[in-house]
């Protein structure tokens, strides 16, 4: 590019009379390697303009507004809670209602109940003999300490 041309363009540039295409010519000239020494002082200026135009916004802008999004979340959450509660109640009822059979005759029922209770107490009494030893300990303790 001719030197004279650039100087004319520069003068026009500082008077804000250049068009976009002329400004692009200036940019091109100043980003090239062979800039004349007395014009070097303008180089950072145009360099910065090009540099600054390339800057981009890093973070993403959430366009979905929160106001729209929130009800859906709460609806989903309430459905989840509802399902949880309902299924829990259903499940518990089933467990309680499980049919174990029943007796129609009260006398038979009494006999069966007694049998069941006897069986239970039988199991409770197992191992009671081994606890008897504790009494021996108590005896000898009383012998030694002679209390009251």
């Amino acid at each position: 590019m001719e030197l004279k041309n650039i100087e004319i363009l520069l003068k026009k540039y500082f008077d804000s009379e250049t068009s976009i295409s002329e400004e692009n010519e200036l940019r091109k000239y100043f980003s090239s390697a062979d800039v004349l020494p007395h014009l070097k002082q303008y180089q950072p200026m145009f360099g910065y303009f090009i540099d600054a135009a390339a800057q981009k916004m890093e973070s993403k802008v959430p366009v979905k507004s929160k106001i729209v999004q929130l009800p859906w979340f709460s609806i989903a959450a309430s459905i989840a809670v509802l399902v949880g509660v309902v299924s829990y109640v259903e499940f518990r009822d089933e467990a309680v209602n499980t049919d174990l059979g029943t007796y129609d005759n009260p006398e038979v029922a009494l006999v069966e109940t007694q049998r069941a209770l006897a069986m239970l107490s039988n199991h409770v009494n197992t191992g009671i003999e081994s606890v008897m030893y504790i009494k021996e300990y108590k005896k000898s303790k009383n012998l030694i300490f002679k209390q009251q």
Binding site: Y13, F14, E17, Q41, Y42, P44, M45
Partner: peptide, 15 residues
Amino acid sequence: RVALSRARKSIRECM
């Protein structure tokens, strides 16, 4: 245009 010219010139001056 006037404001731009003024701005460009003051950048030049500072540089």
